[in-house]
Simulated assay, not measured.
Amino acid sequence: MDQFEARAMTHMLVVEDATASRDWYVKVLGASVYGEYGGTSVVLDLLGNWLLLVTGGGPSPEKPTVTFAAPGDADHVSSQLIFRVDDCQGTYVLLSARGAQFLSAPLDRGGEIRAFFRDPDGHLFEISQLT
């Protein structure tokens, strides 16, 4: 094999409570549940992408130095998910009504309108509209 190939890609987020997070993603973002495993992990289909929510845990034989933990400080971010939308203001209103808590109202940055919100564990999301 000389080229990387994969069947799918899954984005994983570490959460404190898999059930509460599942409910938030279903209610706020309209995700659908693909599978749940032992109360510690949930696989969601979100806009045709796999999103795996897992509770934290310590090292294991295949990752002996790695600990999974939900964000400790929501204001220090190492990744975010970005949703390109056609109507940032309309999406902001919709998601706000569903329980998303935005950091601010959508802001026109010249060429792009965007707004940011967090899930219950502090993972950062952006809605963005090209103008």
Rank of each mutant, 00 (worst) to 15 (best):
residue 73 D to R: 12
residue 82 I to V: 15
residue 80 Q to I: 05
residue 73 D to C: 07
residue 92 Y to V: 04
residue 83 F to L: 13
residue 67 T to R: 14
residue 62 E to R: 06
residue 5 E to I: 07
residue 41 S to Y: 09
residue 58 G to I: 08
residue 13 L to W: 02
residue 101 Q to F: 04
residue 37 Y to E: 08
residue 54 V to P: 00
residue 93 V to T: 09
residue 96 S to E: 09
residue 37 Y to P: 00
residue 24 W to K: 01
residue 108 D to A: 14
residue 33 V to M: 05
residue 18 A to H: 05
residue 100 A to R: 00
residue 130 L to T: 14
residue 11 H to T: 15
residue 73 D to P: 05
residue 89 Q to G: 00
residue 62 E to Y: 09
residue 60 S to D: 10
residue 53 L to E: 03
residue 47 L to E: 07
residue 104 S to M: 07
residue 126 E to N: 11
residue 115 A to P: 06
residue 45 D to G: 07
residue 45 D to W: 03
residue 75 D to K: 12
residue 114 R to P: 00
residue 42 V to F: 02
residue 95 L to M: 08
residue 30 G to A: 10
residue 89 Q to K: 11
residue 68 F to N: 03
residue 81 L to E: 04
residue 54 V to G: 02
residue 81 L to V: 15
residue 106 P to K: 02
residue 77 V to W: 07
residue 50 W to P: 00
residue 6 A to D: 00
residue 115 A to W: 00
residue 68 F to E: 04
residue 23 D to I: 05
residue 12 M to W: 00
residue 33 V to A: 05
residue 120 P to V: 03
residue 118 R to M: 05
residue 84 R to Q: 13
residue 29 L to M: 13
residue 31 A to F: 02
residue 30 G to M: 09
residue 26 V to D: 02
residue 34 Y to T: 11
residue 95 L to K: 01
residue 21 S to D: 06
residue 30 G to C: 09
residue 34 Y to V: 12
residue 86 D to P: 02
residue 123 H to T: 08
residue 107 L to C: 03
residue 101 Q to K: 14
residue 19 T to D: 07
residue 66 V to T: 14
residue 44 L to H: 02
residue 87 D to T: 08
residue 10 T to A: 13
residue 85 V to F: 03
residue 77 V to G: 08
residue 98 R to H: 13
residue 54 V to Y: 04
residue 80 Q to F: 11
residue 86 D to S: 15
residue 65 T to V: 11
residue 114 R to Q: 12
residue 18 A to G: 05
residue 97 A to Y: 01
residue 30 G to E: 06
residue 108 D to E: 13
residue 12 M to A: 14
residue 34 Y to N: 11
residue 17 D to K: 06
residue 90 G to D: 12
residue 117 F to E: 09
residue 99 G to R: 11
residue 3 Q to V: 12
residue 86 D to T: 14
residue 91 T to V: 14
residue 18 A to P: 00
residue 29 L to N: 04
residue 59 P to T: 15
residue 100 A to I: 07
residue 67 T to D: 11
residue 102 F to G: 06
residue 1 M to T: 13
residue 56 G to Y: 10
residue 61 P to W: 09
residue 70 A to E: 04
residue 17 D to N: 15
residue 42 V to R: 02
residue 27 K to W: 01
